[in-house]
Design a protein around this nucleic acid. Structure first.
Length: 505
DNA sequence: CGGCTCTGTAGTACTACAGAGCCGGTGCGGTACT
């Protein structure tokens, strides 16, 4: 009985909804595409089959921190035959691990690591029970232009003689699901798709006249409502700017988080937020994956989201404890133009590509460094994606550049990136409809994007102007905050302190 | 779609102005350097 194993390995009496279906299908040898809300035990869906199987289960994870967290957690539960293999693994550990892979049940690694010949060759000699893609939306979101190794997973799986594959995520729109199926070559997969609706999160969109109004409104929210809260912004500079701004204008403890920070700094901010030493974090989209904080009361966005699924994922970090929470999107009319520009900027002409391709000489070994640095307009990520495509098309074979027609290949490259821009544009269009559309029911719009029926019983809540009273800090507390704020103002006046923020908006 | 900064040039010696150009976020791994 699966339940017995569940109890003996994990100490749970019963499965949560969806888990058993997913596990049974996977164990019966089927590919599975699963969408389960966060906090509903996604990892158990592959940990249990992995531990019960004869061979090794490979878990592909997008972030080092996610791998390390999971393995640490399993080990603390007394499950020892698990390991991570990534750039944290030092040489000796790596050597030991590769020669002892047959002793391991679950191996957590990155898509990039799975490009190592040494590792692949070793894995080929071992029975791979399951191939798991955690946070599988990354295949579609990152694979096409940012982390090409996500698109190479299909070939990796082929090397292992196509073990059953589980692609699992919390948020993937129907088109993203189709893309995942295509890019991982899932064969007639079993779907387990759960609603993205989170009834305890109220939704609101407020259009502001100017950036100044937006900031004032933000300060108002932060002053009036119970933290912890998340504030999402578009750029790194904005994350820092708003964080300083809120520190000056309110009494709450604010930090910022973005991808440009040192690892140690990022870990510190996340820890402080987890431990309740920070009330609010102003962050770019870098913050949140794997964040396991239950009591976030609200999420505010200060920019037009580029995509509804990402928006849903970000606001879904509120109210994990099931208690009432809310998500507010603050926009100004020009935000949508800015968003458009960002998407358009990914475009390159075939001339750019032809120029880059001109550096490749048929018959010579391929040198990726020189290819990547030759044309300034092509960034490193795009260049790496291009290399992936050149390999797919046979322009680069076994590390050697073959004879090829520059113009044709340049056009093919341009087309590939154009298709991706089109994909992003389409996603942006629906996000703009959500942000600026006159449709009253915001929840209905989100559900519609995921092909879900608008359900009348579900609370329809464009709560603009609606009373958010229950979320307000109680009066006594508010008064304390005001006193503190006044004291802060007073100090500022006395010492003539003006915080310098360094960044404008 | 806007707005800022940089650059070049003209007219006057350092300033003024016009026009061009730029402008985002996600992370892995490995190597070269201090």
């Amino acid at each position: 009985m699966l339940e017995d194993k569940l109890y003996s390995l994990f100490g749970f009496q019963s499965f949560k909804p969806g888990q058993k279906d997913i596990i049974e299908q996977l164990m019966a040898g089927k590919d599975v595409l699963a969408m389960l809300p966060t906090g509903r035990g996604k990892s158990l869906c592959y940990q249990l089959p992995g531990l019960l199987s004869e061979g090794l289960t490979i878990v592909v994870s997008p972030l080092l921190s996610l791998m390390e967290d999971q393995v640490q957690q399993l080990k603390s539960q007394g499950i020892r035959r698990v390991a991570t293999l990534n750039s944290f693994t030092n040489k000796e550990e790596r050597k030991w691990l590769i020669s002892h892979l047959s002793k391991i049940k679950l191996l957590y690694t990155s898509p990039e690591m799975l490009q190592s010949d040494e590792l692949i060759n070793r894995l080929k000699s071992i029975h791979i029970s399951y191939f798991i893609i955690d946070e599988a939306h990354c295949v579609s979101y990152w694979g096409h232009d940012f982390r090409a190794d996500y698109l190479r997973l299909k070939d990796v799986r082929d090397d292992f003689k196509m073990p059953p594959c589980l692609a699992i995520t919390a948020t993937a729109s129907p088109s993203v699901r189709q893309d995942i199926i295509k890019e991982l070559a899932l064969k007639d997969p079993f779907f387990y798709i759960e609603s993205v609706n989170r009834e305890n999160i109220l939704l609101a969109v407020e259009e502001m006249n100017s950036q100044v109004d937006k900031v004032n409104r933000l300060v108002e929210y932060i002053q009036s409502y119970e933290s912890p809260a998340l504030v999402y912004v578009q750029t790194r500079a904005q994350a820092e700017y708003y964080s300083h701004k809120l520190q000056v204008e309110s009494t709450i403890r604010v930090g910022f988080y973005h991808g440009g920070m040192e690892n140690a700094e990022r870990m510190l901010i996340q820890q402080q937020f987890m431990n309740g030493q920070l009330d609010v974090v102003c962050a770019t989209s870098a913050f949140g994956m794997g964040l396991n904080k239950e009591n976030i009361r609200y999420v505010i966005h200060l920019h037009c989201p580029l995509d509804i699924a990402s928006y849903v994922q970000e606001i879904g970090r509120a109210g994990r404890d099931g208690k009432p929470s809310f998500a507010v999107l603050l926009t100004t009319p020009e935000d949508k133009y800015y968003a458009h520009q960002l998407v358009e900027r990914g475009k390159l002409s075939e001339i750019d590509w032809a120029w880059a391709l001109g550096t490749l000489q048929g018959g010579l070994p391929f040198k990726s460094e020189s290819f990547e640095s030759i044309v300034e307009t092509i960034n490193g990520d795009q260049a790496r994606t291009a290399v992936f495509l050149l390999e797919q098309w046979g322009v680069i074979k076994n590390g050697m550049v073959q004879a090829f027609a520059i113009t044709d290949v340049a056009v093919k490259l341009r087309n590939h990136f154009d298709i991706n821009v089109k994909r992003q544009k389409k996603r942006l269009e629906s996000a703009i409809t959500y942000a600026y559309g006159t449709e009253q029911c915001k929840r209905g719009q989100l559900l519609h994007y995921f092909n879900e029926e608008p359900i009348s019983q579900k609370p329809c809540c464009n709560v603009c102007g609606l009373d958010l009273g229950p979320f307000r800090k109680d009066k006594r507390k508010k008064k304390e905050n005001e006193t503190l704020l006044n004291a802060k103002e007073e100090l500022k006046r006395i010492f003539g302190i003006e915080r310098s923020c360094g960044h404008g908006n």
